[in-house]
Amino acid sequence: MHALAVRRPPGSVVVYASRWQGWEEFDGRQPYPVVRHAGSVMLPVPEVARRAAGLLRSEGCDTVVFGAAAPLGLLAPGLRAAGARRVVMLTHGHEAAWAGTPVARDLLGRIGAGADVVTYLGEYTRRRLARVLPPGRLVRLAPGVDTEVFRPGAGGAKVRAALGLGDRPVVVCVSRLVPRKGQDVLVRCWPRVLREVPEAVLLLVGGGPSRAALERAVAAGGLGGSVVVTGSVPWSSLPACYDAGDVFAMPCRTRLGGLDVEGLGIVYLEASATGLPVVAGDSGGAPDAVVPGETGLVVDGRDPAQVAGALVALLADRARARRMGERGRAWIEREWRWDLVAERFGTLLDGSGVRDEGSAGGGPLHC
C-alpha cells in the first residue's frame, strides 16, 4: 500500500492507519498526511467509522481504498453515506480463506457488496473470491517489485563473507519463520541434498515463532555446519540476503483446512528480480508467482523428497539455474514493476477502462 500511495499525485492522498513501532518517524518522511488510530489493530467499530467519515469530509476525498478488504470493508456503506463516490478494496490471502468458511463467507459477501472494485492477486484467489463476490467486480491487482532494489549484485558477496559461506552453493529462504512457509521441510530434506551436493548451505533469513524449533532440528540432525538461521534482519538488508543465494526456496503448504494458505508469495518475485531460480510450494496462489520450468519449479511442500529433488536439480546444474534466474529477472521487468502496478491502480481509482485482464492486471482515502 505504501508503494502505491507514494506513486499517487501530490496532494491526492490521506492515509488512515493503525499505529506500529516507529510510526512517528515513518510518517514524517511521507509525502502525504497520515492519521493514526490509537492502537495497533483497526476494526470496523463505531469509533473507527466516525473518524473515517470525518476524514472523508474534512479532506474532501471522493474515493476510498481499503488496503485489506476484510474486515474494514464493512465500513463502506457508512463512507458512501458520508460522500464517497468510489470504493476500491484490495484483497490478500486471508480473504480467499474467508471465502471457504460459512460465517466468514457471509461477512465477505457483505463486504464485497459495498465495493465498486475488489482486487485479487492471481488465479487461485480469483477462483476463491468468485464463489462469494460478483465476478464483474473482480479485477487483478498483484503487488509489484522494485527492480532497482531487488537486483543481481545487491550485496550478496558481503553477506557471504560475513557468514563465512565463501563460494559454497547456497539455497536461501527469506520469510517469516512459521509452519506454512515450509522452513521445517527444508531442514528435514537437507541431509538428502547434502548427499548429492556436500558443500551446500541452507540460509534461513527471518524471524518468527518457529525459530527455536528449527534451531533444535538443525542441532538434532547435526546440520550446524550447513544450515544458517539468521533471525530477523532489517528490510534494507533483504536484497543482499537474496543475492547471497544461488537458489531461492520456500516450499509453502496449505494448513488448517485451507485457512492458512499462501495468497501469492512476493518473496518468489523478489528472488526472481534478484536473478535466482525459485522453488515454490504449491499452496494457494504461490504458483502464480512462478513460470514453472522457466523461472523455477513448483513442488508439493509436504514432500521432503520432492523438495530435495528440485533443490539438487538446480544446484547440480548451474547453467540451468542461471537461465531460470535470467528469465525470472526478465519476467519481473516485463510484468511486475511497481510503475506498471501503479498505473493499473490508477485506473481502478478513476474507473477508466477498468476490466479484468486475467494475468495482466479523485483523491483516495486509504484505510
Rank of each mutant, 00 (worst) to 15 (best):
S359Y: 07
R329K: 06
Y124W: 13
L349K: 07
T63D: 07
L141M: 10
A305V: 02
G166E: 02
G73K: 00
W23Y: 10
A113P: 02
T254K: 08
V187F: 05
L202H: 08
R50N: 04
Q30M: 10
P31I: 03
D62K: 15
V290A: 07
E294A: 15
D356Y: 11
P143C: 08
G156C: 11
E123I: 00
A38W: 09
A310I: 00
A97P: 06
V291N: 00
G144W: 00
A115G: 06
A84S: 06
G222H: 09
E148F: 10
S236I: 01
P364N: 12
P292R: 03
G363P: 04
A130H: 09
L348P: 04
V298C: 00
R253W: 01
D246G: 09
G114F: 02
P152Y: 04
R140H: 06
S18G: 12
L259I: 15
A220M: 07
A49V: 05
L129A: 13
P304R: 01
R85E: 02
V103S: 09
D350F: 14
V170I: 12
G363C: 12
A212S: 12
L194V: 05
H366V: 11
A286N: 02
G83S: 11
P10K: 12
Y268N: 01
G78W: 01
D106V: 15
L238Q: 07
G93P: 13
R323S: 11
G301L: 05
R127G: 15
A271H: 02
G83I: 12
V193A: 14
D260G: 15
A244V: 15
G206W: 10
P10A: 14
D317Y: 13
G166T: 13
R302I: 00
L349M: 07
A154Q: 11
L365M: 08
S12Q: 15
H366L: 13
D350C: 15
G39K: 09
A70M: 10
A84Y: 05
D146T: 14
P209L: 14
A273M: 04
L4Y: 14
V205C: 06
T347I: 01
L108A: 15
L4G: 00
V118T: 07
A219R: 13
G73R: 00
R168M: 09
A99Y: 09
L107Y: 13
M250E: 00
Y120L: 08
F345Y: 14
G136E: 06
D246L: 09
L269W: 00
R323I: 03
D350Q: 09
G363W: 06
